[in-house]
């Protein structure tokens, strides 16, 4: 989108450590929440991650300066581009959060809980796999006939 004055690029090389820590904290807490079963917690986690990334954009915009476009000296103003980008990202995440809220409300309406359900198809396949492990003709009360087949072929008990 734009080219920066070299001074600004250099200033990004010394990130603000407080903001970095805030980013780390927000994203870590958000990730922990997003791993939860409840969709509302997932949503809150996503909010935190989104906010953490917004702070990250403050980090990369380098040294805080005067408001963009004030004055002519590019070294004195903040970098406007990350601000533009992060505003876009915030608007998008606002809309997404709204949608997720509606989604979790609908989920609650349908199932009475906002827990993200297990995938029905996965459960079906797991059951299929379990069925596979024990054959349908297998009868646990019957003794194994494998060895007797080989050792004493002549006399064996009647099998199915």
């Amino acid at each position: 989108m734009t080219t920066l004055a070299p001074a600004l690029i250099e200033s990004t090389l010394q990130p603000n450590i407080t903001l970095v820590l805030v980013t780390v904290g927000l994203v870590a807490a958000g990730t922990a929440l997003a791993l939860d079963r409840s969709l509302v917690r997932v949503l809150l986690g996503m909010v935190l991650i989104g906010n953490g990334i917004a702070v990250l954009y403050l980090v990369i915009s380098g040294r805080a300066g005067r408001a963009p476009f004030v004055g002519e000296d590019p070294a004195a103003i903040s970098d406007p581009l990350p601000q533009a980008m992060v505003l876009t990202a915030i608007v998008i995440s606002l809309a997404t959060i709204g949608f997720l809220l509606a989604l979790s409300y609908r989920l609650w309406q349908i199932s009475g809980t906002d827990d993200v359900p297990d995938d029905a198809e996965d459960a079906r396949i797991q059951r299929l796999a379990l069925e596979d492990q024990t054959s349908s003709t297998y009868d646990p009360s019957e003794e194994s006939t494998t060895t007797s087949d080989e050792l004493a072929d002549g006399d064996r008990s009647p099998r199915r």
Binding site: L39, I53, L56, M85, A89, L100, V116
Partner: peptide, 27 residues
Amino acid sequence: IHAGTTYVVVSLLSSALFLVAIAAAYA
């Protein structure tokens, strides 16, 4: 709704990753 939940959350996560990548590229 069930299918959509998975889809939305996964997409959100990839968007978040993409934003971080853009930030890193810009920095």
